[in-house]
């Protein structure tokens, strides 16, 4: 587990559902073929309405042109992030696009579990609403030990909720790694 994640923030609104994160028509690609996997990165967040893409101004696409990696690696969302379907392709798509951490006010259960159990990204909750404080493109740093986010663009920092029960799974890198460490599976 990386202890410090530094990068650019991409800011989204409330209720970002899994159809916006990865539209259903793209769920046909293989998740184990490295070339096809790139498609998930390429189409990540492609169904977010353009006026809501990259707040506060919108109009900032997450993935430029034919790329599959985004310039942004930290997502700041609002409430109920990842609601909708159970598709694990959603946190996977964000991971393939280079996202390391999502910070939201709250999450839908399945997205949260998938992020943790699949070891795709760290889903942090923040008691404060950050998506009207941090702007898309801001240079931010997430301190995974101190559970903090520092916005280097304006010098402000915010406390995040500790990961609690799931910390051990996040630290291990996913459910299988955790179960191996715990001796549940060989």
């Amino acid at each position: 587990m990386e202890k410090k994640i530094i990068g650019k923030a991409y800011v989204l609104g409330d209720n970002i559902d899994t159809d916006q994160i990865i539209p259903a028509e793209h769920l046909v690609y293989s998740t184990s073929d490295p070339e096809e996997l790139k498609k998930y990165g390429h189409f990540a967040l492609s169904s977010v309405p353009i006026e809501k893409a990259g707040l506060p101004d919108g109009g900032k696409v997450f993935i430029e042109g034919e790329n599959y990696k985004s310039d942004y690696n930290i997502i700041i969302g609002g409430s109920n992030f990842g609601c909708g379907s159970s598709r694990e392709h959603a946190p996977l798509a964000l991971q393939v696009a280079g996202v390391k951490v999502v910070i939201a006010e709250s999450y839908a259960r399945i997205f949260y579990r998938n992020s943790v159990d699949g070891g795709f990204l760290i889903p942090y909750e923040c008691p404060e609403k950050l998506n009207d404080k941090i702007k898309t493109g801001d240079k931010v740093e997430v301190d995974v030990v101190g559970n903090k986010i520092i916005n280097h663009t304006d010098g402000k920092s915010y406390q995040l909720n500790p990961l609690g029960d799931v910390f051990e799974i996040v630290e291990a890198g996913g459910l299988f790694e955790f179960a191996r460490t715990a001796g549940m599976i060989s």
């Binding site: 694990e88 399945i110 998938n114 159990d117 996913g174 459910l175």
Partner: peptide, 10 residues
């Protein structure tokens, strides 16, 4: 309830 692929594989 619904789960993702990793949970299902487990």
């Amino acid at each position: 309830t619904g789960v993702g692929n990793t949970d299902a594989a487990f």
